[in-house]
Each structure stands twice: as structure tokens, then as C-alpha cells.
């Protein structure tokens, strides 16, 4: 009787083939494999179950698992495509793909709209915008008077709400971003182009020939 140990890689729940993910996203197969190395690291940082929990996401961004942040909550909820409270590998790659330098600008604009449409009504309402400005002030050292916050929100609405109905719809948002492209600068992570250099160990675990 012998004792065998399988050398086949044990994948995390929600693992999807790199070739499939590469075909559906802006990533190459090698980049997807490198992202898997990052995903494994993040998904084992607090709860070792191969899935990214919100705490792990917060910890990766702030080095603090308990730091509440409205924007991290929104990003996590959008990454959690299946809405089951965790982010699996497929969701991680598909969501990060929007942040790839080669991803279509239209995808970045749409993602940012969903991010800021806090209550998912299909519009960015004035009270949502103000709530986000207040949240930003809480997390930063910036102190602005209530009047000043109102002024900034009013000015933004004057510029963005071209239909003048007191809310920003997707069409107005798109026009506004195209006039102010710096608004989606944070939707592009140049680092994603170098992901294979950051996680060279993907080569050791690769099961896909280079030619793919």
C-alpha cells in the first residue's frame, strides 16, 4: 500500500479557468494567473476559506479590518456580483478588469455611476452626493463648513444635472465625465499591466502553455 499525494493544484471556491476569464476580460491568461496569486493572498488574510470577505478587503486597503468606509462598502458590493457577501475569484477578475488600462472607458463610466448611485435608484440623487462628500470629509483631515459643502454640491448639480430635474441620470453622468475625465482617473490601475511582474510565482502554478 502506498501513500500518494496529488500534485494537482487545489483551487479556491469560485475558481474559473484563466482561459475563460481572459476571453471575457481585458486580461491575458498570464495576467489572470498572476491575479490568482494575489487573490489567494487576499482571500486567506483573515478567514482562510479562499473567498474575499469585506473585512479582508478593508484590511488590504487600510491595514485595518474594522475601519468603516462608505466607499469600500460600495466597491465591495459591486465586486460581489452574486450578492452573497463574499467575492470569489471569477468576480474578482471580472471586476478588476474594469480597472485595467485597456478596459473601455464606457465600462469605467458605468461602474463609477453604480458606485455613486448609493441606493441603486438609477439616479445619483442630491442627498446621495452630499452623503458622499460628508463621508469623504470624515475619512480625511479636510474640514469644510456645512455651507461650503452645500455650495460644492449645488455647483456640481448646476454643472452635471443638465436636465435640471434635481438628479443625475446615466446620460448626464456620461456627458459630465467626458467633460471632466479626471473624475474616473481612479478607475484605472496602471499596476494591472505589470501584474505578472509583481507575482512571478504564477509561472510555477501555471497549467496553461505560454502560447495561449
Amino acid at each position: 500500500m502506498g501513500c500518494f499525494s496529488s500534485k494537482k493544484t487545489k483551487y479556491t471556491p469560485g475558481y474559473e479557468e484563466p482561459t475563460v476569464l481572459a476571453s471575457e476580460t481585458s486580461f491575458s491568461v498570464s495576467e489572470v494567473e498572476a491575479l490568482y496569486e494575489l487573490f489567494k493572498k487576499l482571500s486567506r488574510s483573515i478567514i482562510d476559506d479562499g473567498l474575499i470577505h469585506k473585512e479582508e478587503f478593508q484590511f488590504a486597503l487600510f491595514r485595518n479590518r474594522n475601519k468603516k468606509n462608505l466607499f469600500v462598502d460600495r466597491i465591495f458590493d459591486l465586486f460581489d456580483i452574486k450578492r452573497n457577501g463574499v467575492v470569489d475569484f471569477g468576480e474578482f477578475v471580472r471586476s478588476l478588469s474594469i480597472f485595467h488600462p485597456d478596459a473601455p472607458v464606457s465600462e469605467k463610466i458605468a461602474f463609477a455611476f453604480k458606485l455613486y448611485d448609493l441606493r441603486q435608484t438609477g439616479f445619483i440623487e442630491r442627498d446621495e452626493l452630499k452623503e458622499m462628500v460628508v463621508a469623504l470629509l470624515h475619512e480625511s483631515d479636510l474640514i469644510l463648513s456645512e455651507d461650503y459643502v452645500e455650495t460644492i454640491v449645488d455647483k456640481t448639480y448646476t454643472d452635471a444635472d443638465t436636465k435640471g430635474d434635481g438628479r443625475i441620470d446615466q446620460e448626464e453622468w456620461k456627458e459630465f465625465v467626458l467633460k471632466n475625465p479626471s473624475l474616473i482617473k481612479n478607475m484605472t490601475l496602471p499596476y494591472l499591466k505589470d501584474i505578472t511582474l509583481a507575482f512571478p510565482s504564477f509561472v510555477l502554478n501555471s497549467e496553461v502553455p505560454d502560447s495561449e
Binding site: A60, V72, L136, T156
Partner: peptide, 26 residues
Amino acid sequence: AAPVPMNAFELISKSQGLNLSSLFEK
């Protein structure tokens, strides 16, 4: 100090919570 942007979305976009590059820090 840098001037405060009059565009609320520009201000919001500077949130650390929206800066995903931290995910890649070792």
C-alpha cells in the same frame, strides 16, 4: 494646502477607499 475642488465628484474620487492600488501593496 491644495485648493478644495468645487466639483463634489472630484473631491469624492480622492477617497482612500476608492484607491484600489493599495490592494497590490506587499
